[in-house]
């Protein structure tokens, strides 16, 4: 009943013909519900990998200012052009993930125009049914997070009573004598502010919910799941989601608890 399908691309995705031309081939793939979902799963897993590396790197805050500031300097200076390649890749992953997931969702919204008067569910988990909501919240948080720590646009750090310095102007002298950006003081200034702590903690819980369904769902989407491995994959999904939650909360609350003492005695 393509006529009853309403606004949804009436001719549907064309079949993938082996023409050897990349562009029509790619657009046919991304136009198909299974093809687009495959890309959502791959980009989702890519983002999970990034999040895990990001977490491990940030745990260096507990090794003291020299460790994390040196690491940040390595990333932004020693990697040279590579950091921009990585950033572009990450932006691409994020944009593809969000765009395709939301496009699939908006098309699927047209698949049941008349809702049930009485609806019950048997298997559907709350996490699986709220992927769009949890995803959008995580996305908005990522924008805030970038504005906060990458662009220094949210708040400054009080280095001495009454003297507030923009995050990006905080400097640190490495033991080698090089003056670098003081990421350590920036993180400490952020996570000793109660509303920042609350916001980050809440966002981590939402990310946990997104990954709770997302990780194991990716395996199914990629065809890497069967009945025998399903429990193991569900456990893996939980471990990944929980590990990311626990690690990130450790940073947020650890700094709040004073495990990373401030360099500048402002308080």
């Amino acid at each position: 009943m393509s006529s009853a399908a309403g606004p949804r691309h009436p001719k549907g995705p064309p079949r993938i013909e082996p023409t050897g031309r990349a562009l029509p081939y790619l657009s046919a793939l991304l136009d198909s519900s299974v093809g687009a979902k495959l890309v959502v799963a791959l980009t989702g897993l890519g983002l999970v990998l990034f999040t895990a590396f990001h977490l491990v790197g940030n745990l260096k805050v507990f090794q003291g200012p020299a460790a994390i500031n040196g690491y940040a300097y390595f990333l932004t200076h020693d990697l040279g052009i590579l950091i921009w390649v990585a950033r572009a890749g990450l932006l691409g992953l994020f944009a593809l993930h969000v765009f395709l997931a939301l496009r699939l969702h908006s098309r699927t919204a047209a698949a049941r125009p008349v809702p049930y008067r009485y609806h019950a569910t048997v298997r559907a988990s709350a996490a699986s049914r709220s992927m769009v909501l949890s995803g959008v919240v995580v996305g908005l948080f990522v924008l805030f997070h970038l504005a906060h720590y990458t662009f220094g646009a949210v708040k400054g750090a009080e280095v001495e009573p009454g003297r507030v310095v923009n995050y990006l102007d905080l400097k640190y002298r490495m033991p080698s004598g090089v003056e670098v950006h003081d990421v350590y003081s920036m993180v400490v200034a952020g996570f000793t502010t109660p509303w920042v702590v609350a916001l980050y903690a809440a966002a981590q819980v939402v990310l946990f919910v997104h990954l709770l369904h997302g990780v194991q769902s990716s395996f199914q989407t990629l065809g890497l799941k069967n009945r025998r491995f399903a429990p193991a994959i569900r456990a893996l999904g939980f471990l990944v989601a929980f590990g990311i939650l626990a690690g990130n909360l450790l940073i947020v609350f650890g700094v709040l608890a004073g495990w990373a003492p401030p360099i500048h005695k402002s308080a």
Binding site: G12, S32, V34, A36, R112, R123, R129, M131, T221
Partner: peptide, 19 residues
Amino acid sequence: AMVGQHDREGFGHCTNINE
């Protein structure tokens, strides 16, 4: 072919909810 026809008919996509 079958996935293409499935999409053309206006069914939604699978989000592995298992319902």
